[in-house]
Amino acid sequence: MKVTIPEALGYSVLGFSIVFLMLIILMGIIVVMGKVLNKKEEPVKAAAPAPAPAAPAVPKEKAPGSAGSIDLHGVDPRKAAMLMAIVADELGKPVNELRFVSIREIEA
């Protein structure tokens, strides 16, 4: 099947447009799907009984030498907790046996 250059241009514009159109529609479907499903799950969450009080993040009895507080510079507590968990995991030691003095975000 021989195709001329103008035909090839036409097919290309059409093909590229179809890919865009399909994925734009799919994007719309995913957005709607997310809204509908998340809306449905919200009342369930609200109706659910209050969760049991979470275990304290810091162990009651600290290992000797562990610090009571950490200085955070440009890092929120959630990220700090993640970083400490990663370091502990990498070292293969419990978090309460490690001493974190400060965490600072390095600005490039």
Partner: peptide
Amino acid sequence: NPKSLLLGAA
């Protein structure tokens, strides 16, 4: 982030 689909199309 469904907007990623646009990049996948481009």
